[in-house]
Amino acid sequence: MKQPDPAVRVARFTKVERIAHWVNAVLFTITMATGAMFYFGFGQSLLSDRALVRAVHVYSGLGILVAFAVAVGPRWGRSLRRDLSRINRWSSDDVRWFRSRGRDDTVRLGKFNPGQKLNAVFVGAAAIVLGFTGSIMYWNQAFGTDTRTGADFVHQWFGWLIWITVFGHIVLAFRDFESFRGMTRGTVSTAWAAQHRPRWYAEEHSSTTEDAELADA
């Protein structure tokens, strides 16, 4: 492979994907902050209106699912759908990366590393689980006592786990600033792409027309 030109940057995330990510980040922050108030039991005394905190939590939480549907469903969601498909598939290199916990340097990764894939899958599944358990808690009239208790229990556990994964996600994003830049400006350096995501880098070079199309989306 020839040396990458440092001035050239590689398109990583389209505008639609970045907007979707940051809308999601804002909604997650609101939902997790209000959720923590209930979890630690200080929301009621800190903020004067418990019903308001609850409404904010419920609607920002449901907003996460709605915003995702809006981002992924229409024509403009093509690049996001393509990335979801990448997140779904694990290559044999991914499996080796995972088994060696990232230390095997013969591994050639695609656009996402397996840790990012698992994070995305967990957050997605947790959003669904928190959505349906939260709905049982909110519209509890339709459910039996044991179902409500079960939903509450699951909601607490997934809420707790999502705090840990989101915290980890933020820490790792700041540790790899070039990767972070991919989500703020939409591009990464060719050096970063070639070194950390060689299979993706090669793929981008072999399909330049599609890239141009994606970047415009």
Binding site: R81, R82, S85, R86, I87, N88, R89, W90, S91, S92, D94, G110, K111, K117, L118, A120, V121, F122, G124, A125, A126, I128, V129, F132, T133, I136, T147, G150, A151, F153, V154, W157, F158, R199, E203
Partner: peptide, 25 residues
Amino acid sequence: MTNEPGTPIGRRVFLGLVGVGAVGV
């Protein structure tokens, strides 16, 4: 749909987690 070869592990983990949630309820 996919440009990358491989096993659909993401989908399995996803469905597994949603299943855990449902069983948990």
